[in-house]
Amino acid sequence: MSTTTITKDSRHTLSVLVKHNLNTFSRIIGIFSGKGFELESVTFASEAERGMARITITTYGNEETVEQINKHLHNVIDVLKVTDLTHKKCIERELAIVKVSTAKVGRPEIMLIAQAFKAKVIDITADKLALEVTGNTDKVDAMIEVLKPYGITEMSRTGSVALKREFQGAVNIN
């Protein structure tokens, strides 16, 4: 079942609305571990609606594999709705905190990069800066790539959260 080659094209973002309980959450994770599907990131959060939670999953696979994932998610009794946001216009955001060494080039150069990505400086020490960046996964990936040569000492990413855009016409303000 699992795909051997992972490409950007085979990346899918699934938004799953469930009844809020940890048993359901475990069942959903169990589909990926038990049936050998890929799982890149997963976020779980309570919904505004009482007793509901939204799980945002990013996974890799060809169309047939993702269709199977979709069907298995639907089979979980407490899953109300599965939306594959991949081919829909969606708003997707991820947050990352990146600690970068300033030893090689000093603070100003790192801060210029941060500015370019609209990242915030949230901690400063003698030889490190901690940056907070939000954006879609591509943007976060891009900033991390740029920062790598300076020495990333530590990093934490949230994984994607996503919702379908209400307006599905042609826009490009991602």
Partner: peptide, 12 residues
């Protein structure tokens, strides 16, 4: 397939 309509009834 599960629809958004069923979401509101679910809550109820």
């Amino acid at each position: 397939m599960k629809s958004t309509e069923s979401t509101s009834t679910a809550l109820k």
